[in-house]
Amino acid sequence: MQALLDAIANLPIPTDAQRVFHGRGGMHPGCEQWTLDAFPPVWVLTSFQPATDAELAAIDAALKARWAELNPGVPLNWVYQYRFEARAETRLMAGSVPEPHVVSENGARFAVHLLRGLNHGFFLDMAEGRRWVRAQMAARPRQKVLNLFAYTCSFSVVALLGGARQVTNMDMADGALAIGKRNHLLNGINGGAGFLPHDIFASWGKITRGGPYDLVVLDPPSYQKGSFVAEKDYARLMRRLPDLLAPGGHALLCLNSPKLGVAFLQDQMQTLAPGLQFVERLPNPPAFVDVSADRALKVLVYKAPD
């Protein structure tokens, strides 16, 4: 655990939401269970194995000592989450969590919820994907975007901030889309976005009629019982891409599964959508460095023929 304590001792004052320690990447032997994130003004410590009271006490002391150096007299706010399988136990360890709680990334604002649920409403590892989407929209404004598995619609927000003409957000979780609508309002976006709380696999007619699209974003869960299993369901998305994309349009394929490498996506794309050209794999944020590129988040860009 020493690498985590050393990282805490050198923490900066965060402004944007970001990861500051990524033990899961395997770069810090003995710390594989730990991650530490900043959701200003709150720190979130996550463990993927049970933590002892002594470990939590040591981390608490380290956080308090560093925070007293950075912000004398300002209360420390931190949350601990223990993740196991598809569940999580979360508890407030010190201070408080704002309600509502809004964080920023590159000037965009997003609502988060740290004390309920497995996820917090905003995935920090997708920062480069959001940067790429915003840059693509700025380079050629007025594009039409399809955002599948939209969750809380961060891709939609940055696309519209970048200059997109229209974004269609689709996700089965109506509650997540409700947060997505709020995220648009937080950024002064009052139009241009549609929100469809539908099962994607039962809605291809509606999706196709809304096209073609200049950009299709695919960011599904790697495993969600009853709705999506990457090994068998990702192919069902890939084979639709040629009919959804406008000439010269792009597809952004995302996969966050340590069990499935880059070849899983590239081999199937070669078979199911051979007309689409592989452009690049986007880098992950530096904080998410991993001993295995195949195990880390994969974000691939493909392009339809002109």
Rank of each mutant, 00 (worst) to 15 (best):
A7P: 12
D16L: 06
D16Y: 11
A17E: 08
Q18G: 08
Q18E: 08
G30W: 06
E32D: 13
Q33C: 09
T35W: 05
A38M: 03
D60C: 09
A62T: 06
K64G: 12
P72S: 05
N77Y: 04
N77V: 01
Q81I: 06
E85Q: 15
R87F: 07
R87M: 12
T90S: 01
L92E: 13
P98V: 01
E105M: 13
E105C: 11
N106W: 05
F110K: 09
A111M: 05
L114V: 00
E128A: 11
E128I: 10
Q136F: 10
Q143W: 04
V145R: 00
L148P: 05
F155W: 03
V158F: 11
A159E: 02
L160R: 08
L160S: 01
H184R: 09
I189A: 09
P197I: 00
G205V: 08
S222E: 02
Y223T: 12
G226H: 12
F228Q: 06
L245V: 04
L260P: 03
Q266P: 04
Q268T: 04
M269C: 10
F278H: 11
P285I: 05
P285F: 00
A287M: 01
S292W: 07
R295L: 02
K298H: 07
V299D: 00
A304D: 14
P305I: 04
